[in-house]
Design a protein around this nucleic acid. Structure first.
Length: 757
DNA sequence: TACGCCATGTTTTTT
DNA sequence: ACATGGCGTA
């Protein structure tokens, strides 16, 4: 096989040794994906293994898709038959096939995080508990943590550790909420993300015939990004590969960055115990980055106590030193990065897509976007609010979901009064409570709504039921696109959005059309055999918009994303912005040594994305919650061996800060920001424009507002800003309007257009 | 029941 | 800065 000649000895060992348990410890940039790709190709072409019996689990859908394409280039269309995908998507597929064994319908709904949290919130209220004590985020992560450790609600309530922890935290009802949540999901015919893994474990534990079937089927099991798997995931694969023992995991403990989600480095250590005859292969030569970048990254990760022994090295040139730039504000940081990109593009003949701007939190994208837009540099934001998480999209999806699964409580709550049908919160509560008390599904209760609801509401519910039934009939006869378009129209959703002529409304309408287009595409896809709505809906909850890219003709843009979503990617130049204490490392990760080490690994991941150049950047002031805050440079900057870093100016950690302009915004920048739309951190819908137009009136960018400025208000007309005030967390502007006199407006709500002066 | 006004909390990361 | 939900009014 000619591809073998491109490999170094350990890489080759990883490709050629196909039998028995194998662990490949792959340092950053060591050609891990290449090894995995060739390994699978080798199985098919040399060992004549049927692709149907190969299971390859990846971290993202995108990674799976890319790998499949690369394999297809070597082995041809056979690659389509591989079982390849994320844990969640592969096991959702298996769970649908075996759902009856668990008492679930095969068309069960998948709840995303938002669905789960809102269900938790509803439960907490119904139980008469304080939702300030039982915060949905806290309860959710507690339940999620338990599920990922395979602790059922029964085990949870009997476990003295959990129970006493909850009592200590003054949250004794946690177990009861967990129980109710699980039962409600079950009755709704719904699984959340963690259930997909938890229930797969239950399936394989309690139905040995099923387990045996899949054990026989999957002769070879491979796991990418093994360092980011949790116990639940690990046990699934351990069970699956128990017969053939052909399990190969690939990972790098230094890049484990998902412990917060239950990922467990311990898995790597346990692996050696579980498979005594394990073959361990280390890929240590880095092909991606320059000498300086590799050395800088190594010097950082060295500060972590918990790690496997590994020596990442490279033969590449020294390259440039890591640059460090300092700005006075987040906006200036954006401008410096933008102009640096502009220069490098000219000087080094680079394209936009060679650059990535990485940050710790999604909210940091705003300043970068503004600066890039002003410099006319095309950019693309990855992650952030997904297309599929937008309200209007979720609304239509809820209709589709409910039509397929009539018991889905969360979808029901979304659509029962959308558009308004006169069914208010009290009616909804009655329906849900009645379902709960009689141990019925939502749909059963809806059929008999006149027993529990007053006439008017009951009639409205009857109409709703008839509507859904008409959708159901359509599903049986038409493909996904026809049905979805029919539902969008008949439900009244499209009309409601169409009638909304505001800019936001137009956008929403377009987004819904975009979803319909996506469904059309799905139907037209020749590789797609099942064109039913059910087939389309099945995996929608597992999609992120990272899966939707690449369709644009214009692919040359600067990449903006969080460090987490940069995992597995590489770029020539990488900017790591917001290198400030409390931001990176995050304030919330300073509580334990383990947390801080995870942040350090995150920094390591960021550094090692770069092929040629890394620029670190920090700002002395930054907006947070709309207020200007002082910042200190991150401790991580000092952790880089100074040999490999070039500081713009003398770097001084406790340098005194400049003048703070607190609250009312800075007039320096004000002049530049004229009636500019607040940055909407929205995902670019598939195949859509990169920039959004400016509306006439949008909630004002309050940072740009200052005394003396002329503004226009949709109701009060023209006026001049007289005074800016801060009261608590709110900022107010006193404005003298030409026709209405002086008004004091809360800037949070004021819709102002700032006139050029 | 629907709607408008405003108080409050949130931002750590994602399948 | 923004979303969310509570509360009062129509």
């Amino acid at each position: 096989m000619d591809y073998l000649s491109h490999l170094n000895p350990p890489q080759r060992e990883g490709v050629e040794n196909l039998e028995g348990p194998t662990m490949i410890i792959a340092g950053a940039g060591s050609g891990k994906t290449r090894v995995l790709t060739y390994r699978i190709a080798h199985l098919i072409t040399v060992k004549n293994v049927d692709p149907f019996s190969i299971l390859a689990l990846t971290f993202t859908n995108k990674a799976a898709k890319e790998m499949r394409e690369r394999i297809e280039k070597i082995v041809g269309t056979d690659a389509r038959n591989l079982w390849m995908g994320t844990f969640h998507s592969v096991f959702a597929r298996i769970l649908r096939a075996e759902a009856d064994k668990l008492g679930y319908p095969s068309n069960f709904t998948i709840y995303d995080t938002e669905d789960s949290k809102s269900l938790i919130r509803a439960i907490v209220r119904e139980m008469g508990l304080d939702d300030k004590v039982y915060k949905q985020n806290v309860v959710y992560s507690r339940i999620s943590g338990a599920k990922n450790n395979l602790v059922s609600w029964q085990n949870y309530m009997n476990n003295s550790v959990y129970v006493s922890e909850d009592e200590q935290a003054q949250k004794p009802k946690m177990g009861a909420i967990y129980k109710e949540y699980v039962q409600r999901c079950f009755r709704s015919g719904a699984m959340d993300f963690d259930d997909l893994l938890f229930n797969t474990n239950v399936l394989f534990r309690d139905h040995l015939d099923v387990l045996n079937k899949y054990q026989q089927r999957f002769k070879y099991v491979m796991i990418d990004e093994f360092q980011d798997t949790n116990i639940s995931q690990y046990l699934i694969t351990k069970r699956l590969s128990a017969v053939h023992q052909n399990i190969c995991v690939v990972g790098d403990d230094a890049q484990s960055i998902y412990a917060f989600r239950g990922a467990n480095i311990q898995n790597i250590l346990n692996f050696e115990k579980d498979y005594p005859d394990l073959r361990v292969i280390k890929l240590e030569q880095n092909y991606r980055s320059t000498q300086n970048i590799v050395n800088a990254a190594n010097s950082v990760i060295l500060k972590n106590a918990a790690q496997l022994k590994k020596n990442v090295w490279t033969q590449n040139d020294d390259g440039e030193l890591v640059h460090l730039i300092k700005s006075t504000s987040d906006n200036e940081e954006g401008r410096l990065v933008a102009s640096s990109i502009f220069e490098d593009k000219n000087n080094k003949k680079l394209e936009n897509k060679d650059f990535a701007i990485l940050y710790r939190t999604n909210s940091q994208s705003r300043a970068m976007e503004e600066a890039l837009r002003k410099s006319n540099i095309p950019y693309r934001i990855y992650g952030g609010l997904s297309f599929y998480q937008r309200k209007e999209i979720k609304d239509l999806l809820a209709y589709l979901r409910f039509t397929i699964n009539h018991n889905d409580e969360q979808s029901f709550r979304r659509i029962i009064n959308l558009p308004k049908r006169g069914i208010g919160a009290s009616s909804v509560d009655k329906i849900v409570v009645s379902a709960f008390e009689n141990d019925l599904g939502i749909w059963d209760v809806l059929q008999k709504s006149q027993r529990i609801l007053p006439n008017r509401a009951a009639n409205a519910v009857d109409n709703f039921v008839t509507l859904i039934k008409s959708f159901k009939i359509r599903i049986a006869r038409a493909d996904a696109y026809d049905t979805a378009a029919f539902i969008a129209k008949q439900s009244g959703l499209l009309k409601e959005l169409y009638d909304d002529k505001t800019i936001e409304g137009l956008n929403r309408y377009e987004n819904v059309q975009e979803l319909l287009n996506a469904i059309k595409e799905f139907v037209d896809d020749e590789q797609q055999e099942d064109k039913s709505l059910e087939a389309f809906i099945a995996d929608v909850a597992l999609l992120t918009d990272a899966d939707n890219e690449d369709k644009d003709s214009n692919n040359d843009h600067v990449n903006l994303m969080t460090i987490h979503s940069a995992k597995g990617l590489e770029f020539k130049h990488v900017f790591i912005v917001g290198m400030e204490e409390d931001l990176f490392p995050s304030q919330m990760m300073l509580n334990s040594r383990a947390d801080l080490e995870e942040e350090r690994r995150l920094f390591y991941v960021a550094l090692t994305r770069a092929m040629e150049k890394v620029t670190l950047s920090y700002a002395l002031t930054r907006y947070r919650f709309g207020r200007l805050k002082n910042c200190e440079p991150s401790r991580f900057i000092e952790e880089i061996d100074p040999t490999y870093i070039k500081v713009d100016r003398k770097f001084n950690r406790s340098e005194p800060m400049g003048n703070l302009n607190n609250g009312s915004g800075s007039s320096v920048y004000a002049k530049n920001l004229v009636a500019q739309r607040k940055t909407e951190r929205k995902a670019v819908p598939p195949g859509k424009k990169l920039h959004t137009p400016s509306p006439d009136f949008a909630p004002s960018d309050t940072r740009s507002l200052d005394t003396g400025m002329k503004v226009e208000h949709p109701k009060f007309g023209f006026g001049e800003v007289k005074k800016m005030d801060v009261e608590g967390a709110n900022r107010k502007a006193t404005i003298e309007f030409e026709n209405f006199g002086e008004k004091t407006l809360l800037l949070t709500f004021a819709k102002l257009r700032i006139m050029e002066n």
